[in-house]
Amino acid sequence: MAALTINNVVKNYGQGDVLKGINIAINSGEFLILVGPSGCGKSTLMNMIAGLETVTSGEILMGDDDVTNVEPKDRDIAMVFQSYALYPNMSVAENIAFGLEIRKVPKDERMKEVQRVAKLLQIEHLLDRKPGQLSGGQRQRVAMGRALARRPRLYLFDEPLSNLDAKLRVEMRTEIKKLHQNLGTTIVYVTHDQIEAMTLADRIAVMKDGIVQQFGTPQEIYDNPANQFVAGFMGSPAMNFIPCRLVGKGTEIMAEVQDAFGKVQYLPVPNPQALASMSGKDVILGLRPEKITEPLQHKEHEPLIRHLQLKVLVTEPTGADTMLVSELNGEQVDCRVGPRFGVKPGEITDLMLDMSLAVFFDPETGARIDQ
């Protein structure tokens, strides 16, 4: 295993920078996820870590070793691809052992390693089959097994679950999480799926347009997004963005909104001193759906709780809870309520807003207003 450090890495294809000064550092044994929309540069960065793409400037370190210009075969990494990349004419056992065979590992050691990996991934009963006889999930396990048999310093996963159906993706996500917990390996994982990022990562780098927008733990990024892009990209459903005005009320700063009857209401803000300079200015209030709920008695006495009368536009029962679509200050907002909160579309209902984790953004730049 090895720590990974990416120092000011730039990639240029001759028509502008694809990666614009990437800085990321993780410790040995950590699970890093590179997440972002298509075209953000995450796969390019992954390929540069692997040595499949050259670095225009900057450096990549594994542990204390500078591998910026080292050949892929000499980096001691293993990669799991989106396409599985299995050899169709080889059995599962032969696929897993192939990398070891290339490295002249003795046959008895290869077979021990195949058995170890097969047991770990619960594919012992598949060792004699060919890839064409396997399901998508089984093929992905074999692809992972081939990488795990190597015992390299660093594992790279390039959107490994994107070809699987939704149920299987959830199952494989759990398997990868268990695998990392059991082995303590250092992993870099590329995905565009923010649910994968939140559930798997120790640290997340959220990327857009070749720039790391935010780097931190899943909870840091979820609770304290650096800008409106990160806030909207991470979370399902996404964070609500509500245009409003900050106003001074005595010694307090409040967010001014209108309820379903057009009556002006004032919402408290966390850390009002930091927002004092924004009094009288229009901002974007960011509030997660789970912070807009039915009235909850155990939270009534918390200082940043307020009630609003809002009109329900749509109800979406999911079993465990119900998503409501409502409207606040002209914007549709998602609210998460209990499954037995009886309300119908068209009704006006009392909803509780928990402002303890509310964040505010500049409506022009989308940047987080420092709180």
Rank of each mutant, 00 (worst) to 15 (best):
L275I: 02
A50G: 15
M111D: 11
V170Q: 07
K249H: 08
D65A: 13
A358I: 02
R103I: 02
I22E: 04
K281Y: 10
L287A: 12
D321F: 11
I60N: 08
F361S: 03
I22S: 03
Q140E: 08
I242Y: 02
L246I: 04
P363V: 14
K281G: 11
R245K: 15
Q181V: 00
R75M: 07
L45F: 15
I49Y: 09
V117R: 12
M278Q: 15
S43G: 10
R173V: 04
F215A: 11
T5R: 15
V188M: 14
N227M: 06
K167F: 00
Q194R: 04
K177F: 13
Q214M: 08
I369S: 09
V105P: 10
N27K: 13
G99K: 07
V170D: 01
C335S: 06
A147N: 03
K249N: 14
M254C: 10
V105M: 10
V314R: 14
T322Q: 04
D259C: 00
Q309E: 11
V359W: 08
A320S: 13
P237H: 08
L310N: 04
D158V: 01
A276T: 05
V312D: 03
Q140G: 07
P88L: 04
G216M: 09
A231P: 01
E290F: 02
V70T: 13
G330E: 12
G319C: 06
G235H: 03
P152T: 01
D209I: 06
Y266N: 06
R139N: 04
K291C: 10
T251P: 09
A149W: 02
S236A: 09
G51E: 03
K167W: 03
V314D: 01
L100N: 00
N89E: 06
M90I: 07
E252K: 01
F81T: 05
T365D: 06
V188P: 06
A93C: 13
Y222H: 03
R368S: 11
N69Q: 14
G366Y: 01
L34R: 01
I195H: 02
E290G: 08
E59S: 15
N12D: 15
Q214E: 07
M172T: 06
R110Q: 15
C40V: 12
P268R: 02
G137R: 05
S279G: 13
K299V: 12
R75V: 14
G319W: 01
L127R: 05
H298R: 15
L154M: 03
